[in-house]
Amino acid sequence: MAESTFPLPDLGEGLEDATILEWHVAVGDTVARNDVLVEVETTKSAVELPSPEAGRVARLGAEEGAVVRVGDPLITFEVAGAGIVGTVPTESEAPRRRVHLSPPDDD
């Protein structure tokens, strides 16, 4: 499994940090994309941050009550290795034209 770290995102309006109010996950938990991870507080408001991906929580970047700066690691996930999503079609024959248009006769 690969690791993926999610940093504290820019929460807007020039805010540079946030305080961890409450973790909604713990190390070892499995999360789905968009599950609520943590509630943080800025000078403007309290915000719940969703998970950007699915995986297992490997590490929390800070304890409740700690101040985290924008861009610092917030949480690290163990995720399945990156792979190709879908398939690439192969062409076994030349593409066929669906419609053949001809200009009208000038009779």
Results as ranks from 00 to 15, higher is better:
I20P: 04
E63A: 15
S4P: 01
D106Q: 09
L49A: 04
S102F: 10
L101K: 09
L15D: 05
A62T: 10
M1T: 10
A94R: 10
D29K: 09
E13I: 05
L37V: 07
A82H: 09
E41R: 12
I75M: 02
T19K: 14
L8Y: 01
R33T: 13
E48N: 09
L101D: 10
E53S: 06
P52M: 07
V85A: 14
A2W: 09
A18V: 02
T90M: 05
S51Y: 07
T30W: 05
E91H: 14
V70P: 00
D35E: 13
V36I: 12
R33I: 14
R69M: 00
I75N: 00
V70I: 09
V79K: 07
V68F: 03
E13D: 14
E3P: 01
V47W: 06
V25Q: 09
E13H: 08
L49W: 05
E91Y: 13
D35N: 11
V38M: 08
S51L: 08
P7N: 13
T19Q: 13
G65E: 08
T90W: 03
V57Y: 11
V88Y: 07
R97N: 10
D10R: 00
A58E: 13
R98E: 12
D72R: 01
P73Q: 02
V25S: 08
H100C: 02
V68I: 15
E22L: 14
T42W: 02
P104K: 04
D72M: 01
L37R: 10
M1L: 10
D105M: 04
V79M: 02
G65N: 11
G55D: 04
F77D: 00
L101R: 12
A54F: 03
I20Y: 09
E64A: 15
R96T: 14
A94C: 02
E53K: 06
R69P: 00
D105H: 07
D17I: 00
R96P: 01
V67S: 00
D10K: 01
R97V: 13
V36Y: 02
T5H: 04
D72S: 12
G61W: 06
E78Q: 03
T30D: 13
R33Q: 11
G28H: 10
A46P: 06
H24W: 04
G65S: 12
E91Q: 13
S92Y: 06
T87R: 13
P89L: 10
E64C: 05
E39N: 11
T43C: 02
G14A: 03
V47H: 14
V31D: 03
M1E: 08
A80E: 15
A62V: 10
A58W: 04
D35P: 06
P73D: 06
D105F: 08
V38R: 02
I75K: 00
L60S: 07
P104C: 03
L101H: 13
R98S: 12
P52R: 08
E16N: 04
L37D: 03
D17W: 00
A94W: 05
S92G: 14
E78L: 05
A2M: 15
K44P: 09
R33A: 11
D35C: 04
G14E: 02
V67Y: 00
R97G: 12
H24S: 14
L49T: 05
D72F: 00
L49E: 06
V88A: 12
E91L: 15
R56G: 01
D17G: 01
P52S: 10
G55Q: 03
V27W: 04
L60E: 07
E64D: 12
I75V: 15
P104Y: 03
G61F: 09
